[in-house]
Amino acid sequence: MSKLNPPVHQGDHFEGAANAALTLVEYGDYQCPHCGAAFPIVKQIVTHWGDKLKFVFRNFPLSNAHPMAFPAAVAAEAAARQNKYWEMHDAIFEHQKTLSPELLFLLAKNVGLDLEQFRNDIQDQDLEDMVNEDFESGIRSGVNGTPSFFINGDKYNGSYDYDSLQAALHAKVQHTHTH
C-alpha cells in the first residue's frame, strides 16, 4: 500500500483541527473536473467531522492537460501569505470552469487580498517551488491521478463519492480504536 511521503508537515495547509486523530489528505488539480466534483463532497466531510478531522490539500497540477492548474495553485499559495488560503482555494474550485489569469485576479479581489502584494507574490519563485514540492511528494506517495486521497497516511483507492469516503474514514477510526 502506498504511503504518504512526506507525512503531513508544518508547511501543509489544513482545515479542521491541527491535532485531530484522523487526517485526510487530497492531492488535487484546480482544473481537473474530477477534483471539481470532489470539492463539495470534501467540504461536506470536513463540516461533518468538525474538530475530529484534519484536512490537508496538496497541489498536483497536470500542467500539460490543464494549463491553468499551476497558476491557480500558485495563486492559492499567494493567498496563504495573506492568511486567505482556504478562501482562495474554495473560490478557485467554485469557478473552475472559467479559470483564466484575469479571473484569478478577480477572485483575489473578491476574497479581500491586497492586489499589489498578490501581484508580487505570484511571481515569487518560492511559491512555484512549493507547488513543485507538493507535486514531487505526490509522485513519491504513489499518486496515480487526481484527486488522490490518503487517510492517516495510507492511500485510499476507492471512489470519491460521499458514502465511500465516509465509510473509509469511519473504518479508520474503528481501526485506531481497536489497536
Binding site: C32, P33, S63, F135, N144, G145
Partner: peptide
Amino acid sequence: PVCGDQMSLYNEMLKY
C-alpha cells in the same frame, strides 16, 4: 480515459 491515464501522468513527471 484521460484523467487516470498513465502516459498523461508520466508526461507531467519528465523533469523529475
